[in-house]
Design a protein around this nucleic acid. Structure first.
Lengths: 150, 150
DNA sequence: TAAATTTGCATCGTGCACGATATTATTTTG
DNA sequence: CAAAATAATATCGTGCACGATGCAAATTTA
């Protein structure tokens, strides 16, 4: 029984999974210099753009649940990247705010995306491919987000 | 200081990371019926196509190292999906072979890729997009694989 | 052939992901 | 207003990923 659809080469999910891991790995040397991991970098990016968010709001932007974010953000507090404070208005909610150290990483990080793009671009992969891929993936996110919510 | 390149919306890595997670999540209900996880499903797919491989050979196909695969494959042995035996020719090497149970899952799994594709396809996402995306990602893998090897 | 190097796998530690469940605060409902 | 439902976060358990390190077997080198 040879089932073409079960061959690794014919599946869309495997390359997505692999590329995601490989790119995260490509980020690592840059992030290591800043002492952070890739998911922590994502949280920082959200907070650089919108200071003072709740755990929930961060989760909405990163599509992550609190059972992932809670400990992640606590680890980030431990290395003095941010502060967590219970909201006085609604004591269920935790407000997250960057420390000076957290804010200061922004300028260092600004170089990272360009450096990473350079790593990726080559004869086989051009900038237009990257843009096109991003557009497609953004559409997928919208479809998949809805599906996973019910 | 507003840095466009540091906004989440302008990064290629984030949608890759999110889509990869969302698709893995979409697989979950199907795989749960078979009692396996997505990485375990990947190992099964490799072994359905090539029976009797070493840990190393599986890792080459899935782009995973032994520190990920060793425990993963041991867990799969525990639920009787495969057998591990030291090669007599080279005692460093471990040969992995499917059990009857492991083989028998193949026919059940053959439906999964089509079902998943149906989940994904919609007005916004067409089959041609999926094929195109796969081609692009396969090229990326080649580029990134080389970069990560040195 | 003895020593050095390489290879294949395993173990350890850390940090995600995420389903399930718990806890506390707020809101809704009867 | 009291009870029920909902919401925001946290905790627990399991399973990846992966860098670092260890170890034994095989190969290469001197």
């Amino acid at each position: 029984m040879e089932l073409e659809q079960l061959k690794l080469d014919n599946q869309i999910c495997f390359p997505l999974y692999s590329v995601s891991r490989l790119i995260t790995k490509a980020y690592k040397p840059f992030l290591k210099k800043m002492g952070i991991t890739y998911p922590q970098y994502l949280v920082l990016m959200v907070l650089w753009e919108h200071s003072n968010l709740s755990i929930n709001q961060i989760g909405e932007k990163l599509l992550l649940n609190t059972n992932t974010l809670s400990p992640l953000i606590k680890r980030m507090e431990k290395i003095d990247l941010l502060n967590r404070t219970r909201s006085t208005k609604d004591e269920r909610s935790v407000r997250v705010e960057l420390t000076k150290k957290g804010k200061s990483l922004k300028s260092h990080a600004s170089e990272v995306p360009r450096k990473l793009l350079n790593t990726l671009l080559s004869e086989e992969v051009e900038l237009t491919d990257v843009m096109l891929l991003k557009d497609t993936l953004d559409q997928w996110i919208n479809v998949l987000k809805e599906k996973s919510e019910n």
